[in-house]
């Protein structure tokens, strides 16, 4: 959870929907830890986001099987949920995780990309509610599911959007 990053008017509300998505893409792409995990941003739409992460031997959690650690899947899910929140038109554009639950249904197959998609399905004045799913190459059997609550933060008026 984070404190608001400053006062200022609701900058995000003044943007066109296209500029808004562009801003969200720029923010997600600038996250150092997302870069460290090799995350790639896919489609973003109002309140929806897709992000994928390649299999990497440095992220292995079970040396016997080569399966990626649940923690790396959590990082992917958290990023994807946050992305869905900041591109939702009814939010002020900033967010932090309040709570996140991940259910691990099966191990992701080693060597395959993990693809997460998140949906911000309800927003109040103060909280965003998000659900997310993660798949490997098998579209029918999810690897993990997540559900979370996120804070809404107003972006500072003088904020520089990362290039």
């Amino acid at each position: 959870m984070s404190e608001p990053t400053g006062s200022g008017s609701d900058m995000a509300a003044r943007l066109t929907p296209e500029a808004r998505l562009e801003m969200a893409r720029a923010f997600i792409s600038a996250i150092p830890h997302a870069q460290a995990l090799g995350m790639q941003l896919g489609t973003m739409a109002a309140g929806r986001a897709e992000i994928s992460m390649p299999w990497d031997e440095r992220l292995v959690g079970d040396p016997h099987t080569g399966v990626i650690h649940g923690g790396a899947v959590s990082a992917l899910m958290d990023t994807c949920c946050g992305a869905a929140v900041i591109c939702h038109p009814a939010t002020p554009g900033g967010t932090a995780t309040l709570d996140l639950r991940i259910d691990y249904m099966r191990p992701a197959v080693p060597g395959q990309r993990i693809r997460a998609r998140a949906e911000c399905y309800h927003v109040t004045r103060t909280v965003a509610f998000v659900r997310a799913w993660a798949h490997d190459d098998d579209d029918d059997r999810p690897v993990a599911a997540a559900t979370g609550a996120f804070t809404l933060e107003t972006l500072p008026a003088n904020l520089e959007i990362p290039a």
């Binding site: 830890h33 923690g71 990082a75 992917l76 958290d78």
Partner: peptide
């Protein structure tokens, strides 16, 4: 990152 905290 919230994901780092979760992983930790």
């Amino acid at each position: 990152h919230g994901g780092v905290t979760a992983a930790f």
